[in-house]
Design a protein around this nucleic acid. Sequence first.
RNA 1: UGGCCCAUGGUGUAAUUGGCAACACAGCAGUUUUUGGUACUGUCGUUCAAGGUUCGAGUCCUUGUGGGCCAACCA
Length: 566
Amino acid sequence: MSTEPKDKDLSRNLGEPLNFIEEIIEKDLAEGKNDGRVHTRFPPEPNGYLHLGHAASICLNFGLAQKYKGKCNLRFDDTNPITEETEYVESITEDVRWMGFTPDQILYSSDYFEQLYGFAVDLIKKGLAYVDDSTAEEIAAMKGTPKEPGKNSPFRERSVEENLDLFERMRKGEFAEGSKVLRAKIDMASPNMHLRDPFLYRIKHAHHHRTGDKWCIYPMYDMAHGQSDSIEKITHSICTLEFVPHRPLYDWLIEKLGIFPSKQYEFARRNFSYTVVSKRKLLQLVNEGHVSGWDDPRMPTISGLRRRGYTAAALRNFADRIGVAKRENVVDIGLLEFCVRQDLNKKAARVMAVLDPLKVVLTNYPEGKTEWMETVNNPEDESAGTRKIPFTRELWIERGDFMEDPPKKFFRLGPGRLGRLKSGFIIQVDDFVKDENGKVTELHCTYFPESRSGSDTSGLKPKATLHWVSVEHAIPAEVRMYDRLFTVENPLSGEKDFKEYINPDSLKVIKNALLEPALKNAKPGGSYQFFRLGYFTPDPDSTEDKLVFNRAVTLRDAWAKAKKKK
RNA sequence: UGGCCCAUGGUGUAAUUGGCAACACAGCAGUUUUUGGUACUGUCGUUCAAGGUUCGAGUCCUUGUGGGCCAACCA
């Protein structure tokens, strides 16, 4: 405790560099803005599942609130009733919670519909908004292009009274969908397209997931987002770069309305190699059956990664490492895998599982005998304790751990070779049996009784340690081996449609893996390291008599890498 | 003949705000190891270009180049 600095606020960032948003916040704090408050928000639209990009945004917004002892709301930006659903609200809420954050408040833009309507009326009264009867095509034609100015709508100069009347009747449902819109009256010649009399309200005779049929006019993003920020007294409204051109409109509306001046700041969206993170693309993968659903373990969705066996701690650490900036980026997904391994290495219990079994018969081991061998649960965590695993005359080992004609660099089993069975005994291969196809079906070995793990007096030094499972005690399981969903770094930049780059081997199902008996009661959410194979987690598809495991990530594998190079 | 944003090793970010370009991942080589895991050590490699300001520029200015964004009754 003596090394703990007295002044927490001062020590807060000593030594660690700030990202550009933290710099803005600290400057604001130093200048006494917002009474020293920091209030952010995470504002998803409930029209899809959250993905890796959102995970980073969640960590940013909630992380900032934590760091500066502020608040962070979860606000659903639900102003488009056509695409939004309760299912998405539920998954998003769960994902945020699972990520380890608790929103200060859970709110909805739709909570503010009445207030937002009032804001619109206020703008009309100030002569800053008007009802336009033009068709969508006419409005588009009058909009101009980025290089040419637009033209004023013939309805632009309607009187305040007429606008008020029309807008009220829009609300009452007197007009057909698409027949009228409310637009801000700004500048049709602005070089910023978003200032060319942007839409504020549109008519949609649609059922809303929360307000039901109460409304038939709905505010556009620009009429809702900044105002919601303002209503919640958000101090720092953080969004992605594509909203930069919206900022003048964000500020214009707040200024004209005379409401709390929330400020918008933008950062570059994060892209990740070997995957896609656009809701439209992800929806396609789901709808076209390329994956089993939004939570398919190959999906970059938070729910998919969770099911895959990735941990929230790994995701948080990842978000922290990739940082936040304003330039285009493609984050190496290998860094996420590194974070997952790093976290799981400390937490996951080591267990024995054989994925491609090859039988070993210890010819000098008594039939019917079982020795319960003690083994460490996690060498990285002494507090994880120990357990016992059954050792018998007949065992399963990994087929890949034996070679009939091993090269020098291969130091596992071969004819005459020694091998250490983890937490068991050292064995030597005396003979092997093949079937008519030349496939090795069985190894005949002798074991060295004096080589027992922990009390080895044999003096033998095998080069490899192998995992194994007792034939008699093994429990069967299905194991789903997941790999990256795409074969190329950027599936979107190729010549072909991104789905052409889907990795045909992104899922390999092993129907008859064999596990040590201790795994009998494994439950989804748990993390295990299958010794020497990788990190695995039970899938919710598991049943009483059939366990299903998902591979989260392999172990780093120097041998596999060396083989690949050849 | 539009406006805006951006540019630092292979990747992602730093650089005490004008003072010796660094951290992580990846790569390579090695040590340790009852996981070809972990841990540890070493190593490779960086300021888009050209001018300018300055004793001094990744940082400031100008121009250029390259990339991105901006038109939806989407967010």
